[in-house]
Amino acid sequence: MARARIADDIGREAVDRAVREAALRDDIATAVRYTLQLLAEHSEGNTLEVRVPPFGAVQCIEGPRHTRGTPPNVIEMGADTWLELATGRMSWAEAAASGAVLASGQRADLTGHIPVLRLPR
């Protein structure tokens, strides 16, 4: 059974609150899930798994399909880092160089797939 889609108005409001102020955990959770949803929609595929524990994970990007066990291409990070990447406040190169993300596998790279949402400043 597919997950319910987060509506754009609800998702954008949650992202705005999560990156601009001391957000509640529910806002952060919704913001992360919404931006992961956008990533999966804009970069369809199953070759890379992006994890933002404890809020969510998606498979994305075209390429070899993974079906069982631990995926060979995984990116994992905290919610703050993901929201910075998802909104364009941090580049993939900056995040990777800072050690803010754990990436393993040849295809563990989000260059060209983020940001998924730009907020007005």
Rank of each mutant, 00 (worst) to 15 (best):
A22T: 14
L24Q: 14
I28Y: 10
V32N: 11
R33C: 11
Y34E: 10
L39M: 14
A40L: 12
A40Y: 02
H42D: 13
H42L: 15
H42P: 12
N46C: 13
T47W: 07
L48C: 10
E49N: 07
V50N: 00
R51S: 04
R51H: 09
P54R: 10
P54S: 06
G56F: 01
R65G: 12
R68K: 14
G69Q: 13
P72L: 04
P72E: 10
N73D: 13
I75G: 02
I75W: 02
E76W: 03
E76I: 10
M77Q: 04
G78T: 08
A79R: 08
D80G: 11
T81N: 08
T81G: 08
T81P: 07
L83A: 00
L83Y: 02
T87N: 09
T87C: 01
T87F: 00
T87G: 01
G88F: 00
R89S: 07
S91F: 09
E94A: 10
A97G: 12
S98V: 01
S98L: 01
S98R: 06
L102I: 03
L102V: 11
L102S: 10
A103P: 01
S104R: 15
G105I: 02
G105R: 05
Q106N: 13
Q106S: 15
A108C: 06
D109G: 08
L110Y: 02
G112V: 01
